[in-house]
Every structure is written in structure tokens, then in C-alpha cells.
Computed example of a mutant assay.
Amino acid sequence: MMTSKIDSPPPYEEALHHPKYDNFPYLPQHVSPLPPPPSYSPSPGYWGQGGVYPPASMCQGPGFPPSGMPTTIPTLSAGLPASNPGEMEDFLSTQWESTSVRHAFIRKVYLILSAQLAVTFSVVAVFTFVDPVRMFVISYPGIYWASFVVYFVVYCILVCCKEPRRRFPWNLVLLGVFTLALSYMAGAISSYYGTKAVFIAMGVTALVCIAVTVFCFQTKVDFTSCGGLLCIAAVLLMIIGIVTAIVLSFQYVPWLHMLYAAIGAIVYTLFLVYNTQLLIGNRELAISPEEYIYGALSLYVDIVHIFLFILQVSGAATE
């Protein structure tokens, strides 16, 4: 018995040029050429060129932003849709403006602080090295208590009242009065100590301030979240100060005086760290850029108190 020969499928080229093989329905009669593959271009902006596959609106790869986006942005921020270039530009513009405003705020605060410290240590130098002035300050302690009252009142106004603290030029006037009052107090206290003790206190205070500033700009530890602990430390320092004053009023004990002064210097150094990180603004809490008077005031008070406490330690040590 003869069997019919089953024809095998023709090759593709033969079927393409000889469409007589119509017994294979899956073969298309009219074959259109396939689209060419996309040309590779290493340029970052090649997505925006015309005729390039795929279109810019359909694909965005890392390092290849669409047309209209800045090509210098390496990554996208978390939570911002990558398909919205307008929001990305607004976000980056806001971030840049915020950083520039913060830097200008820090420069302004440190400029004001430098002027305050220059006035204060000039007064301290005059009260320490000019003997007639030194004797006058020691002979009239009432001026010291008057300056203390001015210091306390102006401090309460600047800390508790937002309007005077932010209104120019009254904020600078109040800060100037406060600086003069505290400078007189620091100079009056320094007049009771020797020249060597004052020099040592100035040098140690400068080293502490530089070390704290460098530490705050480099560390990842957030001290702004420890405000409650610092308040407890301030209360304990006040209690220790009252007890020490009562004990020393009956009998002067040098080591007790040095211990209290050392604790006070440590506590105010921690306050300086806290207020410096508030100033920097990259932690949990931050000072508003409008509060440059408050920023300079807080740092200035911390530095002067560190100087006075270190002066007590050095003065007791050099006696």
C-alpha cells in the first residue's frame, strides 16, 4: 500500500518569495519590516532627542533624566514621584533655599556673638589690668547688683517676649544693653582674681568653645532631644550652688568651691552643645532663622558662664 507523501514546511525565504505555498495559514502574506532597534547614546540627555525609542514620557532611567530636568541631580528624594519633574524642581529649590537661609542665619549669629564676646573680654581686660578701675569696681559693689538687675530684666524680655526680640532695631538695642550689663558683671567678678587666673580662664574657655563647635558640626549624636536632662542638670546645679554658698559663708573650703565651679563649667558646656546644635538646625529641634537674636543670646550666656566657672577653678588653684 502506497502512502501519500507529507510535504514538509518550506523554508522561510522560499515561502516569502513564492507565496504559492498557501497550505500554511500561519504564514503572513505581506510582511512589514520590523522597527529598527534604538540607537545607543551615552549622552545624559539622549531621552529628549526626537525619533529615539522609547519616548521620554514613557521611561526614566537612573542617570538619564527626561528633557527639561537638570542633569546634575544624581538621585530622587524618597516620597517624591519621579514622573513629576515640576515637583522635583520645586522640592530641590526649596531644599537649596532652606540650606542657604540656614547658612546665612548661622553667619549672622556668629557675627553678633563675636561682637558681644569682643566687648565682654575687653571690659574684663580693663577691669583686670587697670588698677584704678579695678579698685573702683571693688569699692562700689552696688553697681554690680544694679547691672545684675538690668541683666535679669532684659534677659526675661528677650527670652519671654517674641515681639521685642524680632523687631529691628529694638532687638539689637536690648541685646546691646544686655551685653553691657553681663560684661560689667564678668569684669567685676574678674577684678577679684589675679591676672594669671584670668588668662588661664580665657584660654581654657576659648579651647572649650572651639572644641564644642567642631564637635557639633561633625557629630551625629543629637543633643537637642536631651532638653529634659539638661533642665534637671540646671536645677541640680542651682541646688548645689545654694548649698555651697551656705557652707562657704561659714568656712571657706577651697576644694568644695572648685568642685562646684567644675560642675557648673561642665553643665554649661553641655548647654553650649545643645544650643549650638539648635543653631545648626539638622537635628530633632532647631531655631527658626528669624530668631538670630535668641541664638546669639543663648550662646553668649553659655560662653560667659563657662568663663566665670573656669575662672573660679583657676583662681582657687592659683591661690
Rank of each mutant, 00 (worst) to 15 (best):
I189Q: 14
L279M: 15
C226H: 14
A234W: 01
C161F: 14
L236W: 01
L236D: 00
C231D: 10
S190G: 08
A186W: 03
G241H: 07
V221K: 10
V247W: 10
G227A: 03
I200V: 09
Y151S: 11
P254G: 09
T213N: 11
V208A: 12
I266C: 12
L158K: 05
A206R: 06
M258W: 10
C216P: 09
Y184W: 15
T179F: 08
P164C: 10
I189W: 10
A262E: 04
L279E: 15
T244D: 12
L272H: 15
L278K: 08
L248E: 10
C161E: 11
M238L: 15
I280T: 06
R165I: 04
V212K: 14
A233V: 07
T219G: 10
L158W: 02
A265R: 15
I189L: 13
G228Y: 04
A197E: 03
F178L: 08
C231L: 14
I246Q: 09
V198T: 08
T195Y: 03
L272V: 08
V214E: 05
V243G: 07
Y151H: 11
F215D: 09
L180E: 00
Y252S: 08
C160W: 10
E163K: 13
F152M: 09
Q251V: 09
V204L: 11
A188F: 11
I246G: 02
V212Q: 11
I246A: 13
D222C: 03
L272W: 10
A188P: 07
Y151E: 04
K162I: 01
A245Y: 07
F168L: 13
V243Y: 09
V153Q: 08
I246C: 12
A181D: 01
N275R: 04
L175Y: 09
L236K: 01
V253G: 00
C160H: 12
F217G: 01
H257E: 13
C209L: 12
Y274M: 13
V267A: 13
R165V: 03
Y252V: 14
L158F: 03
F178C: 00
I210W: 13
F271W: 04
G203W: 11
Y184M: 13
F152P: 00
T213I: 05
F271Y: 13
E163Y: 13
A233M: 13
I239N: 00
G241I: 12
F271G: 01
P169T: 09
V235W: 03
T269F: 05
G203D: 02
V177S: 01
P169Y: 09
S183P: 05
K220G: 00
P164Q: 06
V221L: 07
Y268Q: 12
F152V: 06
L279V: 14
I280G: 05
Q277G: 11
A211C: 09
V235M: 08
I246H: 06
V173D: 02
G187L: 13
A245W: 06
K220V: 00
V221D: 03
I280A: 07
Y274V: 11
K162S: 06
Q277L: 07
G203V: 06
V247L: 15
Y193E: 06
V212F: 12
L270N: 08
S191F: 12
L180W: 02
G227I: 01
V235C: 10
Y260I: 04
